[in-house]
Design a protein around this nucleic acid. Structure first.
Lengths: 231, 231
DNA sequence: GTCAATATGATACGCCCGTCTCAAAAATTT
DNA sequence: AAATTTTTGAGACGGGCGTATCATATTGAC
């Protein structure tokens, strides 16, 4: 009823964007404290439960659950923070391949820094998928996990005119296969690569895909293979 | 002590390979029953807990836990079954790109049929990773998840002589990014593609990567761009 | 300073998971 | 057929998670 103090931000919304919305008051303070604690824990490699964050933040379990009713909500919030610098990425070049490389350079280190967080997010989205299959779904938060679509399309936007729409989309889809945390899982965990190796392989694959898409369209146009390199 | 009846297969080992090891007796019977039930449930889309399998198989919870001490063991067993036809894949062509395409044609439908199973396996491997990070690890089963490495290297084996070892490895690594369940997660769940679309994109990307690797090595050798297509 | 509104903490509950124990049932041996 | 071994089922236990309740402490308005 009392709308004078806008507390709509309390526990409902995500407070996206920079966490500097400040929003004073006890609630915002506690929430910020928890988020910082959770972020710190996650960057240390663990995926804390709500209770663990509560303890680490020296807050009662009950209070913690008031702000983050589940581990999913917690992870989602930390993901949003980790995603920050990635979502605000802006192209600096007009060349598609360069833009893609630049996007990867921005995103991959960030994803690596928040590796545990993104892996937790992936895990939770798999959980959600399984629950959806089983029919056991309580109108839950619904994880996002679609940012790469827009980002990659933005990165390869320069090709929009030079490629048939179908091929453009296909390139974006193919690139999205080598963009997310999945890359870390495969290259670091399975292959045992380090950060440099991982980034290097991803970069090469991304470049190869972009060049291949361009080359195909050129082939159709007239076999001008000298323009294969960069366009 | 009594070794006359070889019951070493009882609850310890994985009984890999075709499940036709038969191995009569109550234990084998119950285990087979549970495995079949679990497989059926998983192909229906759900990721059952041990208790759920127990109920579905009309076996007491205690018994179920005797054979599969955790959901992880359960999933691992079903994964082994689902992996069957993939692991026995043999190349039918001498052309690398064709071989890769063929491998994808074999593997992707199978992965899709066992989608829930493979997603559950991925989820569990993420769990394991998190626990390993946190130090909370009880000398557990240790998920495999490395089959794609050998398979892809086998598929592109014809290039082994034509490519520098570094490039060969890099190609295998890049291909492994677009090989597993991750492809389904990204293309079906995020992009909303159907099975055909998913397979099509994966195939294109795979072909593009192989061609790119070949083209690069040729470029170094003398810019013979007419051989870009297949070699 | 007083008072209402609000945030917090302690506690308890139900649920599911994984483990254990022990008696009953089934299978195998002799 | 009898005896022994093996397998099974029922139940109990502890632990963790998510929820609800209620008294207490803190905040902000007057």
């Amino acid at each position: 009823m009392d709308v004078s103090r806008q507390r709509s931000t309390a526990s409902g919304d995500t407070e996206r964007g920079s966490a500097q919305a400040a929003e004073r008051g006890p609630r915002a303070r506690t929430k910020r404290l928890m988020l910082e604690t959770a972020t710190r824990l996650m960057q240390a490699g663990v995926t804390p439960s709500v209770s663990e964050v509560a303890e680490a933040a020296e807050v009662s379990r009950a209070t913690a659950y008031r702000y983050f009713p589940s581990q999913a909500a917690l992870v989602q919030a930390v993901v949003d923070e980790g995603l920050g610098p990635i979502l605000t990425w802006q192209p600096t070049s007009a060349d598609a391949e360069r833009r893609v490389a630049d996007l990867f350079d921005t995103a991959m280190p960030r994803i690596e820094a928040f590796e545990a967080t993104f892996k937790a997010a992936l895990k939770l989205s798999l959980d959600q998928w399984a629950r959806r299959q089983a029919g056991t779904l309580g109108g839950e938060p619904a994880f996002t996990r679609g940012h790469r679509v827009d980002l990659l399309q933005q990165a390869i936007a320069p090709l929009k005119g030079h490629l048939p729409p179908r091929d453009f989309k296909r390139l974006a889809q193919a690139l999205s296969l080598i963009f997310g945390v999945e890359v870390l899982i495969v290259l670091k965990d399975i292959w045992g690569l380090d950060s440099r190796g991982t980034r290097s392989v991803a970069q090469w694959a991304a470049g190869a895909l972009v060049r291949a898409a361009v080359a195909e369209s050129v082939d159709e146009g007239g076999d001008d293979c000298s323009r294969l390199a960069v366009e």
